[in-house]
Design a protein around this nucleic acid. Structure first.
Lengths: 326, 326
DNA sequence: TTGAAAGCGCTAACAT
DNA sequence: ATGTTAGCGCTTTCAA
């Protein structure tokens, strides 16, 4: 029952609680024999400091929150790993929360992070405009967004240049002979969705192709949305000769639709898509894929966050990493 | 900076801190006018109680830890949802941690849960024998395992009857005419892997088929493991006429191997597998699938945990839910 | 270098 | 019904 306190250790080691605290925290101002006695007592009793009590004094915690819009998406999993590695190197640990792109859940978890006084939060916001991060910022808890931006750009962000990546993918499709490229867009509130749509338009323009409203269908970044959107697009007459899907899960859905229609790619129709999908059935070799350095995104986001936690002050920084077409 | 304390609220509302505390906690023992003044002050100041300070008094937190062996696996995602729903209904929130089947990571997160004094922990242990949950149990933090069991069965567990489900799947394959069923097993340390293997053997015996050592290959519950294991099995002479894969991710890998070999299922070879995979490319209709009630597993695990947290005492309970073959 | 004492923000006993 | 007081476990002055 964690009944062992610093006092117990102090008594056993025959020193004051303050000395135990010193041994535990700022290293070498304690005589060696005392230090040894304290360490022995700690081990013997199995003492573990109470982090709540410590926080009450120091206002410092070592837990970071990662609030993510869809944990199932391997995109995020790799990111989490990057963040964890950076965090644990600095003595921090990371807890995760899954919002399912749901603003209420997002708010609830932000509240948890605030209530628990987490040292900092990495967030992939479900909406660019409607956000609850003030709850954190008010209390001085730094926030870094990953992947997506926030409209009120007062926080750091780490991600890729979605506009350019999308544009390049379109150009690649055009090079492959496509002239009627359907685009499956993401949720209107998410900046990556807007950016990728904008890149799609740029790509068309750069290729001298007209933009056609009917060729753009919005999905929800989930499998089902991709499936439905692809079905809508494939009903067009004339049919698109390529599909550009703005995230990995929707791509799975789109592929299902194509299969249901008895269409093969790349022979019947060309595909391009955002995000790695090596985890699924080797679709990669048959389509144009935009890969993001997800591990690196997580790592850098965490390092930025740690600098903020350490008190560094600099204008909100936007780290833009390179996405690669392959 | 969260400088607003209960004292500030008390002063503004012109009451004592204790009254504010009472308003916040045990409802109706406060006169209505005071209560209103307090609520107004709280709102006006944007006061939020400091949960660490509260814990120091009450020894009660409202955060549950979910320590999961692979967050990417949709199996767990749905489980998390079940747990979250049950938790939030009771006023608890849930934080996640991903161990990647790595015992060190598992221990680290268990330490975090203990240090943060989480109210309880739901765990899918990476090993049945080597576990660190004593860190929790010693401190009186209840633990419920999901999916997998622990050898030292002193904690509650919610899962399915893996032995029976595996056996039924084998029988189903035999009914389809299979006589040489390859089995891709899971990591030796995980109880579900052992149970499923044992079910496989039972199924063979029940069908009057011999057990052959060469037909069993172990994987790691990840995609790559499935791919490699399937490759090994398909090299056998004579080739298996069916593959039974003991989890979903390995099934993806196995399917990749089959594709590489130019084999189709179910025409060339039959497949059976554990765990839902509707999220992937509609493999489901072409193989025998064992589905687990994942949401329900999470929900019941959480409810069990909440009862333990509430102080109920009963012998370690093993809740076995039904897996369905479809 | 070490110890004594105060106090972080809160709630539970005890008074009133 | 409300206020006063003490103390949860820790760290950090301040003294010695």
């Amino acid at each position: 029952m964690s009944r062992i306190t610093i006092k117990d250790v102090a008594e056993l080691a025959d020193v004051s609680p303050a000395t135990v605290s010193r041994v535990l925290n700022h290293g070498p101002t304690v005589a060696e024999d005392l230090r040894d006695r304290v360490m022995a007592a700690i081990r013997q009793l199995g003492y573990r400091p109470n982090s709540q009590a410590r926080f009450l004094r120091t206002r410092a915690t070592t837990v970071l929150g990662l609030i993510i819009s869809d944990i199932t998406n391997p995109f995020f999993t790799s990111m989490v790993r990057g963040a964890e590695d950076a965090a644990s190197k600095a003595g921090y640990s990371v807890v995760l929360a899954n919002t399912d792109e749901d603003l209420d859940k997002e708010r609830r978890y932000i509240e948890v992070a605030a209530a628990e006084n987490m040292a900092g939060v990495i967030l992939s916001p479900a909406s660019a405009t409607r956000t609850s991060i003030e709850l954190l910022l008010e209390r001085g808890v730094p926030v870094v967004t990953v992947d997506r931006r926030l409209q009120t750009a007062k926080v750091d962000r780490v991600g890729v240049n979605n506009v350019r990546a999308a544009q390049e993918a379109v150009i690649r499709l055009v090079d492959q002979g496509c002239r009627r490229i359907g685009f499956i867009a993401g949720p209107a509130e998410v900046t990556t969705a807007a950016d990728r749509l904008s890149g799609y338009k740029h790509g068309l323009r750069a290729s001298g192709l007209p933009f056609s409203r009917e060729l753009v269908v919005r999905g929800d970044y989930r499998i089902e949305g991709g499936r439905a959107a692809a079905a809508t697009l494939m009903r067009l007459d004339p049919r698109p000769d390529a599909l550009f899907v703005s995230n990995n899960l929707m791509t799975l859905g789109a592929v299902m639709t194509l299969r249901d229609l008895g269409l093969s790619y790349p022979s019947d129709i060309k595909l391009a898509a955002f995000d790695d999908m090596s985890w699924t059935l080797g679709l990669s070799d048959t389509m144009t894929l935009i890969s993001q350095p997800t591990y690196e995104i997580g790592r850098q986001a965490c390092e930025l966050l740690l600098r903020r936690i350490a008190g560094e002050r600099f204008p909100p920084r936007h780290v833009v990493l390179g996405a690669t077409l392959d």
